[in-house]
């Protein structure tokens, strides 16, 4: 697969002296949906802003569709659309005027039919003559997307596109993002909603303290790091874990009404059989069994927390 964005040894030190990015290397494949996850202040927006030309890099280089973002900025930027994290619009401008402006600004000749299509796709068509200040927050966010799409970009950055957006609209946006991908647009999104990454992304990158901690395909990530949990709902409450079971990774939950067993789904022997046999041998009755795979969220929290732990240990 070919990289449509290639970030090489990128670092950013802000004027305040704060280092927001530390030697970041990242390749985004053409046509994929890439989710960038990370806690507040991890450096997601900084990374995106550098690629889009809003923030100057301190060190390193980025290629967008093969063009250096600094030396060959015209070619690089004309391929990129950006929906920034903060909604910023001209209150007195009309929806139509604003999207047309964006298209012109990116050096494209007027194309009313295309802009109409974009506005219709984003359910903004009936608002085309409204002043922006008369739009709701969700509409404004969709307008920002329309502006970003106005010049038919090959690469689309969505910096927390669904922050403050209701559930229905979020579904619509996901739908739209998928449609764009089908049209061959590469999408890079940041989000705090892990379910979003889980639902949408082909690959996931995790960034913390300005460093890329991990990049992998979502499915593999969830498999590899995916811990599974088996919950055994007991027939009668238990005060403590009985001695015969004490050598297994078990915890007692729900006021002694359930045993929770953590295991690795990828292991040859998961230990489930042994657990059940032991329960049987000791006549511990149970009503129900319930297993679940840990979510991306668990993985994420785990990684970020471990990162913190590592740091704490180092100091």
């Amino acid at each position: 697969m070919s990289a449509v964005i290639s970030v090489n040894n990128l670092s950013k030190i802000y004027e305040s002296g704060f280092q927001a990015l530390k030697n970041v290397n990242l390749d985004i494949n053409a046509g994929e949906i890439f989710a960038l996850l990370g806690p507040n202040g991890a450096g997601k927006t900084t990374l995106i802003s550098i690629i889009c030309g809003i923030v100057n890099p301190s060190d390193g280089a980025v290629l967008a569709d093969g063009h250096d973002i600094v030396r060959d900025y015209r070619k690089a930027r004309s391929k990129i659309g950006l929906v920034p994290q903060e909604i910023a619009t001209d209150a007195f401008e009309s929806v139509w005027g604003s999207v047309s402006f964006s298209r012109g600004l990116f050096g494209k000749p007027r194309n009313d039919a295309y802009i109409e299509k974009v506005l219709r796709d984003l359910s903004l068509w009936d608002k085309k003559d409204s002043k922006i200040m008369m739009l709701s927050g969700g509409m404004k966010r969709r307008l920002m997307i329309a502006k970003a799409l106005s010049h038919e970009p090959k690469i689309l950055f969505l910096d927390e596109p669904t922050a403050g957006v209701d559930v229905e609209l979020r579904r619509d946006m996901w739908e739209m993002v998928r449609k764009l991908r089908e049209q061959g647009v590469t999408i890079i999104l940041t989000t705090h909603y892990i379910e979003e990454a889980e639902e949408m992304a082909d690959r996931v990158g995790i960034i913390n303290h300005g460093e890329i901690v991990l990049v992998d395909e979502k499915t593999r990530l969830m498999q590899q790091l995916g811990r599974k949990q088996l919950t055994v709902h007991l027939a009668a409450p238990m005060a403590a874990i009985p001695a015969p079971l004490s050598n297994l990774p078990l915890t007692l939950a729900d006021d002694g009404m359930a045993l929770v067993y953590d295991y690795d789904a990828n292991q040859e022997r998961t230990g489930i059989e042994e657990l059940l046999r032991t329960l049987n041998q000791h006549n511990i009755e149970f009503k129900d069994l319930h297993s679940r795979q840990s979510s991306l969220e668990d993985i994420f929290v785990d990684l970020v927390k471990n990162g913190v732990n590592r740091e704490a240990m180092a100091s």
Binding site: G53, Y73, A88, S102, L105, F106, G107
Partner: peptide, 14 residues
């Protein structure tokens, strides 16, 4: 001031 400058900065303009 309003932040809309992002668009001009990210555009392929000299």
């Amino acid at each position: 001031f309003s932040g809309t400058i992002y668009e001009v900065l990210s555009a392929p303009v000299s």
